[in-house]
Structures are given as C-alpha cells and as structure tokens.
C-alpha cells in the first residue's frame, strides 16, 4: 500500500473517529454527572440529523439555521428527557436509571419513525460537493466540516470545563456529589446541563454526517455502541480520553478496512469494547482505580 492510500485511510479514520468522539463525549459527560451510561446517546445523534432535515426540508429553513434548530431542539429533547424521566427516579439508583435510558432510546426512535417516517432522509452538503487534495489523498469538503465542527466543540467544551464557574461546578459534581452539594452546587441542575450538552454534542455529530450518509430513525444504536466503545476505550468520565478514544477507534476501523476487510468494520468497535473491558477496564487513559478523596 502506498503512502497516498494510507493517508486516505487515515483521513477516513479521522472523519469517523471525530464522530465517535462527539458521541463518546456525550457518554462521558452524563457518566461524570450521574455515574450512569446513557443508552439513549445514539438517539441524540439520530435526532440531530433528523430534526435538521425536518427544519430544512419540511420547514424550509436555510441550511445553517436548520442545523442550528436541529442541534438546539435535540438539546431540548435531552433536557426534557432528564427532567421528565431521569430526575423522576428520586434515589438515583444507577441500574434503574440505565433501564430508563434504554427505554428512552426506544421511545425516541419510535417517535422519530412515527413523525418522520421509516425512510432514509437526505441533507445537502454544507458547502457543495468539492474536495481538496492533501498530498494526493482526497479530502471531501464535508469531511473538513466534520473535523472543524468537532474541533470547535472540543475546544468549547474544554473552555466550559476549565474556564467557567459552571464547568468547575460540573467537575466538582463528578469528583464527589455530596461534597458538591454541601458547598452549594445544585447537583440536579448539573445533571440536566449534562444531558443538554450530551444531546447537543450527539446532535452535532448527526448533523455533520447526514449530508454524507443520509439519516433514518434507526441509525442511533449503531453509532451509540461505537461512541460507547470509544468512551470505554479512552476511559469513562474523562472528556479528553473520550476524544482520544473516538479517534483511536476511528483509526482502528479504518486500518481494519485497509488490511482485513470492510465486512468486519462494524465488528471492530465491539471487539475493542470487549478487549478493553477484559484487559484494561479503566481505559487507555484511565487510572487503575477510581479513588475519592
């Protein structure tokens, strides 16, 4: 395999990897706030694309505005889901909450099917179908959008986490919930904010990919499981690890297509998930145990 071909696979890996990274960030944010895996995370990805299509095709909004509506509406769905379902479980029992997210995932995809139909729905490319050449490899303009939006979201999230009072409160909540409460942090509000953000990140991924892949009511679970694998691979609860995990998973898939066969591409995430859980449950960037001071 030549260098150009290899670069082509690397670019593809980066593209898919950044999508997984966004979804993984959603898993990580909610896990940090609640200690729970949100199995509805993939549906936020689906809704991001679907609601953008709806705003663009059905409401007739211009594409940038439609994308904004899609992401904002999905964030709102995430917030309502937290207020209406997660928060209602008063004792916060993790197992019960996980079951609630599984149920939520089914409700969201069924509703999408009911409201938007069973067919695949397209969205135009953000700025046409052009491509640029990078050392001989082809880089589609939409891929640049995907990489750029991901980078923007990661930087924005970093800023929120490390440079704002809200982010500091969220981190405090992740370290020790009771400690956060006694210094005056409304931990329930932090959970709601986490769901809003996680939904927005998933939606952004769905929005950015839909012009390349189209979307449908049932695209959530596949991407959800990959984002989950990426979050586990990096080490749950750490945003940077989620991004690294996403990119690594994207690369592994790409490499597997290059050297094995594209048939096994979707199995890679599951193999990675199992391998990590067996051999290094704390993830590649995680510490060996979750200590609490």
């Amino acid at each position: 395999m030549g260098g150009t071909e290899l670069l082509q696979f690397v670019l593809a890996g980066l593209k898919n990897g950044s999508i997984y990274a966004l979804v993984a960030l959603g898993f990580t944010l909610i896990y940090a706030a609640t200690g729970v895996i949100n199995f509805a995370q993939g549906e936020f990805y689906m809704l991001g694309g679907m609601l953008s299509v709806w705003a663009y095709a059905d409401l007739g909004l211009p594409l940038p505005l439609a994308g904004l509506v899609g992401v904002a509406a999905t964030a709102a769905v995430g917030g309502v889901f937290e207020l209406g379902a997660i928060r209602q479980r008063k004792d916060g029992d993790p197992l019960a909450l996980i079951v609630i997210t599984v149920g939520g995932s089914m409700v969201l995809s069924s509703m999408a099917r009911h409201l938007f139909g069973p067919n695949e729905r397209p969205l135009p490319l953000f700025s046409g179908g052009g491509s640029v050449s990078v050392f001989g490899a082809v880089l589609e303009v939409q891929t640049i959008w995907i990489l750029g939006l991901t980078a923007l979201a990661v930087v924005g999230l970093w800023y929120l986490y490390n440079r704002t009072g809200l982010g500091r409160a969220m981190r405090a909540c992740a370290v020790n919930r009771d400690a956060a409460r006694i210094v005056g942090i409304d931990t329930r509000l932090m959970v709601t904010v986490s769901f809003l953000l996680a939904a927005a990140l998933g939606a952004l991924a769905g929005l950015a990919v839909t012009p390349l892949t189209q979307t449908a009511f049932d695209v959530g679970p596949t991407v959800g499981i990959k984002g989950f694998a990426a979050a586990i691979l990096g080490g749950l609860g750490n945003p940077i690890a989620a991004v690294v995990g996403g990119l690594v998973l994207g690369m592994l898939e790409s490499v597997s297509i290059a050297f094995i066969s594209s048939t096994y591409k979707d199995a890679i995430a599951l193999i990675v998930l199992l391998a990590v859980l067996f051999m290094r449950p704390q993830g590649i960037l995680g510490r060996s145990s979750r200590e609490k001071v």
Partner: peptide, 17 residues
Amino acid sequence: MLFGPMSVEENLELGAQ
C-alpha cells in the same frame, strides 16, 4: 470530601460559590 483532582484554590473558590 475534598475535590481531590482540583487545586487548593479551586477547592476554596468552590466553597465560596
């Protein structure tokens, strides 16, 4: 129940919020 990974100053600022 300190915020272990956070600095002394951040812990104090959280106390002051």
